[in-house]
Nucleic acid binder design. Structure first.
Lengths: 190, 190
DNA sequence: AAAGTACGAATGACTGTTCGTAAGAAAAAG
DNA sequence: CTTTTTCTTACGAACAGTCATTCGTACTTT
């Protein structure tokens, strides 16, 4: 029933440590300590520290991209798509806080060619999002504004969710989701 | 006319490097190279690497706090205060991009007691902001929502400005300021 | 017998910082 | 205007420590 491979355990401990201290400040000895191993033993399960970061970053990138595939493929209006995308971000950010942190803050410590590949993925995602916004403005369902400004204001506001969201705190997840989407959609429309 | 002390030059180079690579990944030798010095020479002008970070973080914290003092002290309604605060964030984030980056991302590498002091300053700022939001909701000028959710959504959306704002790019600063404040205020009201 | 895993020791590279020293600028004294 | 003293700055060498990673070896599970 345990079923978690040691590799997975390492990845999760790494994500947690990257969140708390950052990639550079996390030593392989710290990481090994956290799961009661010695640093040299880690290398029986992973190839390098950089490989850990790469796995975390691209795993999370794919969660966003496959979410985008789902939503953008549906036959619904741009407003519904944007609402679904905002909820996707809230969903991903709250269901696996540690990974998303690493994904948000630590990707810049990737080394080329991974760094370039990651930036490329990100850009693609943003462009698809922006296109949906533009469609919404053309069909009149959104207030015409600069789509870049709208896009980044949107993305930024959900990007830091992991930073202040505490699962045990008062405003429950449902309330948060409802109020954030409401605030942003009201801001975009009319 | 030059007038820039070497200390200031070091601080600015450090802010730039912290933005590009992070505090931990910036070595004193990197930093010295960037301004054509040797690492040991830096210590004629600064006390330690940690002191550089402290200066950058608290300098920027004070810019926000004194802005808050100005705005909160004026005899205007909560809506006008919020508008002014959003514009303050946009102003600070765009006029000194590098410092704000360090301020946003690198403060967690402060060591105690500075770390605690910084967190305290930040919390005070957020509480004052939250109180303005609550006043606005009580007087009916803002839609009643959870003030914490509203606060962080607001702060987050301007927090990442430095990340995508490019002074030379198409949407000019005036347009950006106008559209962001419009989007957020529309989202909060009614 | 074979494969997978954990460990200690060692590697070379890099870290922030200190120190003695030498060169230069500024200030003081002649 | 000189000469001498003081202050500031830059540098190379060295420090003790940490870093990711490798390797040979032993233990455990197939």
């Amino acid at each position: 029933m345990a079923g978690k491979s040691k590799r997975q355990i390492i990845l999760e401990a790494a994500a947690r440590s990257f969140r708390d201290k950052g990639y550079q400040a996390t030593s392989m000895r710290d990481l090994a300590d956290a799961i009661s191993l010695k640093a040299s033993s880690l290398y029986n399960h992973i190839g390098s520290k950089q490989e850990i970061l790469r796995d975390i970053c691209f795993d999370n990138a794919n969660r966003f991209l496959s979410g985008m595939d789902d939503i953008d493929g549906q036959n619904i209006g741009p407003l519904e798509k944007i609402k679904a995308l905002i909820e996707l971000h809230i969903q991903v950010a709250t269901e696996d806080i540690t990974s998303v942190t690493a994904f948000n803050d630590e990707w810049r410590h990737l080394e080329d060619p991974d760094l370039s590949a990651f930036i490329q993925l990100r850009r693609n995602y943003e462009n698809r999002f922006k296109k949906i916004l533009e469609t919404g403005m053309q069909t009149g369902v959104l207030t015409p504004t600069d789509p870049t400004v709208a896009l980044y204001t949107l993305l930024s506001s959900v990007r830091w969710l992991y930073d202040w969201y505490k699962p045990e705190r008062k405003p429950g997840l449902d309330l948060i989701r409802q109020q954030i989407t409401s605030l942003l959609l009201k801001g975009l429309c009319q």
